[in-house]
């Protein structure tokens, strides 16, 4: 198996590449990104490329990869500008799939990492979205719109290329020791914001399950769209109780205005889709992916508990950081001085 990973410079891309390169059936892992990997990698090749993936067709042709793992969909709207969101999520996915579907392409599998954010969060939602359901109202934010557009591009690609196994995994809100999702950032604050009078049902997936699920979908054939989330839902008040944080209410009217000072003070940014989530929550049905054979490591409650314990350790000892050393990595991979196994 020869795999191309997009978003290698992100936590997800790096971690999943690390997992895949140790798999016996995997011959080659190539990663593209604008940034360098954030974890040490044994033999994954890193190519610096812009996020619109214009050179991708050349890479695919040159390396003869058969699988693309697209982890580079932006779900957290606070990290990039609205324009960048559109460029990366929609145009990037389009270019990527164009390269994958080009004449003579060797690609036989495409796996994408998206989010249950696609379903939105509204008062008239069902309590558990199934993969076949649609969101209750049209998307209001740029990030939701771009994810939905990307999803429709993926759907078209799957229809036009029946010989390619296409899997789209929609992940619920992620918690873990390393992720910087909006909810994880909120829970790391000394006190945690809530919307007064609302206590939404939330569902979480642990970062290990995200990597596990991506690797699972890459190594096995599970075509289709799947929700990936820990079993069960939990109210926000209970999440804060387990993490051991006090809640501070924001007014239920003009909430985005009240959230503005928090952003200006650089405490936490609460974009509209997160404020909607803090009001109405979101739950998804997870039976399909479990029936496809994936075994979860964590339930929703387990995820929150693991996050709380990780947070306690981090507040005591801090977090180690990794810096990519290009010359060192190239030396170990390509220098004739290094004795490699099986040669």
């Amino acid at each position: 198996m020869r795999i191309l990973v997009t978003g290698l410079g992100s936590f997800w891309g790096s971690k999943v590449a690390q997992r895949l390169e140790s798999e016996p059936g995997v011959e080659l892992v190539v990663g593209v990104d604008t940034q360098e990997p954030v974890v040490p990698l044994e033999h994954t090749e890193y190519v610096r490329a812009d996020s619109s993936f214009s050179i991708l067709e050349r890479i695919v042709r040159a390396t003869k990869v058969d699988t693309i793992l697209h982890t580079h969909l932006i779900v957290d709207s606070t990290k990039d500008s609205e324009r960048a969101l559109h460029e990366i999520n929609v145009i990037g996915t389009m270019n990527l799939l164009a390269a994958a579907g080009a004449a003579g392409s060797t690609i036989r599998k495409v796996v994408l990492k998206s989010a249950t954010l696609e379903y939105g969060s509204s008062y008239d939602d069902p309590y558990f979205f199934r993969e076949t359901m649609h969101r209750s109202h049209g998307p209001k934010t740029r990030v939701e719109r771009s994810l939905l557009e990307a999803a429709s591009v993926v759907g078209d690609f799957a229809e036009d290329n029946p010989h390619v196994t296409v899997t789209k995994l929609d992940f619920a809100n992620v918690l873990g020791d390393h992720v910087s999702s909006p909810l994880a950032r909120m829970l790391r604050l000394p006190v945690v914001p809530e919307v007064f009078g609302f206590d939404p049902r939330l569902q979480f997936v642990h970062e290990d399950d995200v990597i596990g699920a991506l690797a699972f979908a890459t190594l096995r054939d599970v075509p289709g769209v799947f929700n990936v989330a820990g079993d069960g839902t939990m109210p926000w008040s209970e999440v804060c109780a387990i993490v051991g944080k006090r809640r501070v209410p924001m007014p239920p009217v003009l909430t985005s205005l009240a959230a503005e000072p928090l952003r200006l003070l650089r405490l936490v940014e609460l974009p509209p889709e997160v404020l909607a989530l803090l009001r109405y929550g979101r739950g998804v049905d997870t039976t399909a992916f479990a029936q496809a054979g994936y075994q979860y490591g964590y339930t929703t409650a387990g995820t929150v508990d693991a996050f709380a314990r990780g947070l306690r350790l981090q507040t005591t000892v801090g977090q180690p950081e990794y810096r990519y050393e290009r010359d060192v990595e190239n030396f170990f991979r390509h220098s004739p001085a290094v004795v490699r196994d099986g040669e």
Binding site: P223, G224, A292
Partner: peptide, 28 residues
């Protein structure tokens, strides 16, 4: 989600399907 209907998309009633055999992480 606009992509519900693509190849082998998840069936609307997954409950009645027999459970897939559980898989080991490294399938030969």
């Amino acid at each position: 989600m606009g992509s519900g209907g693509f190849t082998g998309a998840v069936s609307p009633e997954p409950i009645d399907r027999p459970l897939a055999p559980s898989v080991a992480w490294t399938d030969p």
